[in-house]
Design a protein around this nucleic acid. Sequence first.
DNA 1: TCTGGGGTCCTAGGACCC
DNA 2: TCTGGGGTCCTAGGACCC
Length: 491
Amino acid sequence: MDLDAMFAAVEQRDKVSLRGKPVVVGGLAGRGVVATASYEARAFGVHSAMPMSQARRRSPPGTAYLVPRFAAYKRTSEVVMRLLAEVSPLVEQVSIDEAYVDLAVTGHDLSTAGVTELALRIKAEIAAATGGVTGSIGAASSKLLAKIGSDLHKPDGLTVVPAGQELAVLHPLPVKRLGGVGPATEQRLHRSGVRTVGDLARVPLDDLVDWFGTAHGQGLYRLARAQDDRPVVSEREAKSVSAEETFDVDLTDPVRLNRELDLLSARVAGRLRAGGVTGRTVNIKVRHHDFTTVTRAVTRDQPTDDGRLVAQLARRLLAEVDTSGGIRLLGVGVSTLADFAQDDLFSGSFPEFGAAFAGAAEPLGEFPGAGGGSSAEAGFPPPAERSDSAVVDLLPVVAAPESSDTSEMPAKWPAGAGRDEAVVPVWRTGQDVRHEEFGAGWVWGSGLGLVTVRFEGPLTGPGPVRTFAVTDPMLHPADPPDWTTDGAHDP
DNA sequence: TCTGGGGTCCTAGGACCC
DNA sequence: TCTGGGGTCCTAGGACCC
């Protein structure tokens, strides 16, 4: 089941004056693209993924250009998915507007006539329940044919492929109707004179594997023969979480880029926590002015959902990329997800730190702007009076208090005198640190475990760390430093 | 002002391990 | 012509989907 031009259909449902008119939903800013065009707009050649500027040139006067209202689409989607769930316990939602329904696990009459009757009933129920948003249905013996069937008579279509008729339906179609055949595959096939699925079915397996590699080659070989036993799977766990943004104008200012990274990191971390997952790999994506795109990744030993740590790693990754020519898109992602939210492993006894982190390794990287911190106050300045822009830069958004990061940063004390940084163990993330000898400092790494602290003044040399007070002024703005930890730590 | 945003899967090469 | 054969993990890039 696939809802027809869903975003546009919901808009037309909700606003009577849009009915019968071309409606284009998508990004309206300079670099926006079309998400969905109503069928009236499609008549003018407007389609999904087209640059909005081009859509505007093609569309007639009176066309409505709308920004997506995802909440409304989600509500409509939920109504439809609930209907489908009544048809079968096995429903695979592919996207907000599309789902596979496994009828084989139900008691429904699976004859062609029975399935046709059922599908017509479902279509009527969808239209009634959504206030006129229609869905197209394909019914067949496999996902491949069901999907193709749902496309065949859009909009408001129904295609039932009787058992045994699969190849008859499939072979006349152009190859790009097969799922997994995009522009690149289509071009390569055309180069060898393969235009229809029937043509494809005559290509030897060896050739397909040569052209497309093992997985894709074998996949095409099977699909061309309607061999598809992919099961309908109801719940799939996410493998990654990411956020990205295309800027209206290319960005070059490193401070601005870092700030965007922080915001994206916070967004991703928030969604990790909302989903109850943590991840070990932080990815960034950088699209240059010329649309070339690079990615960089680091994988840590311990998973995190702490936006500040994600941001810190993302900043380090970005520092490896030449951004001087202008950046049009920045993205941050977290992958290698662990489905358990790892909690405060270190809330036990402090001396464990000594054993766990005794070995020295690489220090934390620099980040631009960290050197600017200066507060002449000797005491522990109330957060409201703090004006350390470097810290604000790094931590623009407060990560959730239930941070579950257990960063395994190396314990490292500066070897020589005169440095103002130390990597120290703390129990809880926080932004302010006070050392009884060295005075106030700032945590500018983040995460539980070991963080980097930049002190107001130079440290006098290696020595035992005895007392740290760590507080999080963003969480408890009015509180004084509220807890202390004692422990010998002498890396 | 040509090319969004959120994902999945695959490949290839290198490091590393036994 | 000194240097095998598995396997896993990681990174980077690309194709594809909605």
